[in-house]
């Protein structure tokens, strides 16, 4: 933020700089100042609603503090982190979260690519209809999606078991089937987002390149592999990054469908339970901080490891 503050004299010059043919530096200064004046509020709000709370969480995580027992609040250093990291529950919920993330993102990428291809090539008469349809899962409330899928698979209300001839199979009675249904709901809801990002990528691939490849006698599959996909790598990576981190926060579906039973607890759910259910603010804050670090780690992996260039994907030069 320091770049926004200019000495009074400089401000004076900056103002006069908006004249007809300003000196380069003055003009740049004026622009810089205006830039920060315009973007500053949004920047400040973003910091206020995230940076401040996470710092507060870091601070709280160093205490043993139970909301119903405020008199016994005491500083315990890194004890909370030690308790969490030596507990299998943390690692289990981390693994469950990773499992859900990997499964959903992988399926969504393939499915989303298919959807994008169809939308890209669909007849102009069909396109608006498909577009409308695909936006519905994207925009529907996750909780609604969770209920719809839960009721579809539930023993008493669901039609899935009779349709699949599964009798009294209890989808929410053990780990694997519960995860399957959770992933289904997650995939259904978020594939459209991926497919729309991929559609944008598809549109970026120049028709000339496609035509050239066609003239060269490349088959549809070869063109897809050699021309289309390499040219939309940036879009794919951005879609992957956003969805991975979004999937990593999975909470709503688990809350509604299993409430964490059968070991389906995700990291977000674990954090929620420590603070909101158990009222252990210190322990819960520590889980929150660890979750945050995981997200940072994943982003760093993507950006450094896979070289995701976000500016490029967004059309920045």
């Amino acid at each position: 933020m320091s770049s926004t503050t200019l000495a009074p004299g400089e401000q004076e010059r900056a103002r006069t700089a908006s004249g007809r043919r300003p000196g380069l530096t003055d003009r740049a200064k004026a622009e810089r100042r205006l830039g920060w004046m315009l973007a500053g509020p949004a920047f400040a709000v973003m910091l206020l609603v995230t940076a401040y709370p996470i710092l507060q969480a870091v601070y709280e995580s160093l205490f043993d503090f139970r909301l119903t027992d405020p008199d016994n609040r005491s500083f315990t250093g890194l004890t909370n982190y030690w308790v969490i990291l030596t507990d299998w529950i943390w690692w289990r919920s981390l693994l469950v979260t990773l499992l859900i993330t990997v499964v959903t993102v992988a399926v969504e990428l393939v499915l989303g690519f298919g959807l994008a291809l169809v939308m890209h090539r669909a007849l102009t008469t069909l396109r608006p209809i498909i577009r409308t349809a695909i936006l519905i899962p994207y925009a529907i409330i996750t909780v609604v999606s969770a209920f719809a899928w839960q009721y579809a698979f539930a023993l008493d209300t669901g039609f899935v078991n009779p349709w699949l001839n599964l009798g009294a199979f209890n989808w929410f009675g053990s780990f694997s089937p519960s995860i399957v249904v959770i992933c289904l709901s997650e995939i259904w809801k978020t594939t459209p987002f991926i497919s729309l990002l991929l559609l944008a990528g598809l549109a970026q691939v120049s028709e000339d390149l496609q035509e050239a490849a066609k003239v060269d006698g490349a088959t549809w599959w070869e063109r897809l592999r050699k021309v289309t996909i390499p040219n939309m790598k940036a879009a794919i990576m951005v879609a992957l990054l956003f969805r991975t981190l979004d999937a990593f926060r999975v909470f709503d579906n688990i809350f509604i469908m299993t409430n964490g039973a059968n070991g389906t607890e995700s990291v977000s759910f674990l954090a929620y339970r420590q603070t909101i259910s158990r009222l252990e603010i210190g322990l819960g804050s520590a889980v929150s901080v660890l979750l945050f670090l995981c997200v940072v780690l994943i982003s760093a992996l993507f950006i450094k490891g896979f070289k995701v260039d976000l500016s490029q994907a967004r059309g920045e030069k």
């Binding site: 609603v49 996470i54 819960g284 976000l310």
Partner: peptide, 19 residues
């Protein structure tokens, strides 16, 4: 920053905000 906020785990800031 916008990107970082977009991928921020919501649950992490619920506790401090609640407090």
């Amino acid at each position: 920053t916008a990107l970082a906020v977009a991928i921020f785990p919501v649950i992490s800031i619920v506790t401090p905000l609640f407090n």
